[in-house]
Design a protein around this nucleic acid. Sequence first.
DNA 1: TTGTATGCGTTATCAT
DNA 2: ATGATAACGCATACAA
Lengths: 342, 342
Amino acid sequence: MGKQTASIVDVAKRAGVSVASASRVLSGSSYPVSDETRQKVLEAAQALDYAPNTLARSLRAQRSNLIAVIVGDNADPYFAEITRGVEEVANERGYLTIVCNTDRQSDRELHYLRMLQDYRADGVIFAGSGLNEPEYLEQFEKIIETMQARGAAIVALAQHTLQLPTIQVDNFGGARAMTRHLIEQGHRRIAFVSGPTNLLVATARLQGYTAALVEAGLCVDSDLILPGNFNREGGEQAAHKLAQFAAEQRPSAVFAANDETAFGVLSGLSSQGWRIPADISICGFGDLPMASVVYPPLTTVHIGLRELGRSGAHKLLAQLQREEIEANEIIPTSLSIRCTTS
Amino acid sequence: MGKQTASIVDVAKRAGVSVASASRVLSGSSYPVSDETRQKVLEAAQALDYAPNTLARSLRAQRSNLIAVIVGDNADPYFAEITRGVEEVANERGYLTIVCNTDRQSDRELHYLRMLQDYRADGVIFAGSGLNEPEYLEQFEKIIETMQARGAAIVALAQHTLQLPTIQVDNFGGARAMTRHLIEQGHRRIAFVSGPTNLLVATARLQGYTAALVEAGLCVDSDLILPGNFNREGGEQAAHKLAQFAAEQRPSAVFAANDETAFGVLSGLSSQGWRIPADISICGFGDLPMASVVYPPLTTVHIGLRELGRSGAHKLLAQLQREEIEANEIIPTSLSIRCTTS
DNA sequence: TTGTATGCGTTATCAT
DNA sequence: ATGATAACGCATACAA
């Protein structure tokens, strides 16, 4: 049980060669090494069960091969899918993925950013949108600039408060398309359950909704815009409010700013005895895996979440290799018309 | 953009003190430092925007403050919840959490384990159960032993093939309790949709099911044990098979080995026009957040997933601090009786 | 209380 | 082709 992990020095010693030679074969250097030396080193490494110390390597090389994904909540399927996509690509390329849950709190986000800077993470992916909290903006800018100056790459997967390379879902377009669809189906009074007001993706979706309304010559009734919070509770509360409308004022459709909210609306309304979509149409945004398994299967705006994560990681790695990248990419959405609308 | 990140040497220089002094204040050492020196160092650090290099620190300290959670698939809500729990505790204690998706493939698991060893991760949490693949067992044992010898802590959150400190859900007891409940409700022919046969948690649940049957004096009919794979597809296929039973042979209840599978059974049966629970009762295992939002809300065995993750992390950290820990803990389950059974 | 020097494990530079 | 050595950034043993 004696010895700890063997170092490259141990390997060199046992192989009877210099540390430099050992390093050259063990690090996969292109530097020429005789076959004999190579053999001896390899055997010694094998015998000693040598495992290279990445910490030392990283310190020396000034790159850690660590990337991080900053999410609101990894238990939220929206983020979980993105994280998965990021990890897939990272792993393919030999990177490790650190997951950081912030619960959308700026101070936690900042805290993580600092830690990541300390760990000299090679890159950071912001899975969620930027926060509209001016009091933190300055600190954010500073730490991000510091990281970038060091050579780290940053990518945002949603419109961000800061000027960052971005891959965005077309939130505006998707919301507008869905609203148009509802209008085409004959709906005139369409409610919207919004997301957190400080979240840019949420406001973009709201704007898509109002744009479609205006384009169709319908008036935007602020009574029909219900507050939500991107979670089920918000949806359930909205369902409760919906039930209080006078019959003739009642909207014939509800567009929830994300799927979670739609689930809340769905269960809230169902439990009150409403029939979906006979009594009211419901639709969401995101197309989480669960969207098709709830009953009735949810009509929603589809986002390729895992693909979004993968693209984000690719963009990050491209930056790391000093490739030219587009500052801003937008990936389209599509409509998953299922059974909660008619 | 002139200079890179400032090092502790830069700080010491600017403060006009030795590197040792700078280190003592910057590392939060308990070593005595005069207030004056402390001030100068702090100011210099501030001015230079100093960020400690954790890589160097870790190399020196022989501990990385990195822990990893190995999951089948982070996009699976089961694992996502666990990961979240792990991350919460890790973050509270100053650790970073690395997420590793293996898709339950031994080679990917091994690959990750090696990387984690290279990074000198302080600990690894196996979120899923061990795999019954003998050809990999030896390699697993070796790498795990190596890590442990180095001082790393390992914890498994399910019964594991290897001898590891474990926190387990009472899969057997939970499955037995649910099966008993069904029997009490009057069910006599109860189908079971199993999980991957090489997964210990899956077999434990199957055993709980058969145990309850036997205890109640009912026969275990192998025709009623349907293959599944812990995913929705498996559940849907099982639903298809259920529909092909002759009326008098048809089970009156289906117990799916996990919630995902139950969702598949639910949607498969619903889309075939079956009414739940009027035509057949359905229940699952896990109690994912979505269990209560599907329609009808799913009866299932409740597991405190996030808490499981948190406990795992605590157990890991306790080990790291050389505290005595129980080799094996079992956390109980409870029944969440909702609407898919009667 | 402060400073000097060494080592953590690697890799790149510079001889040889 | 090989080897000695400096340096990456930090924290500690030891000396003062």
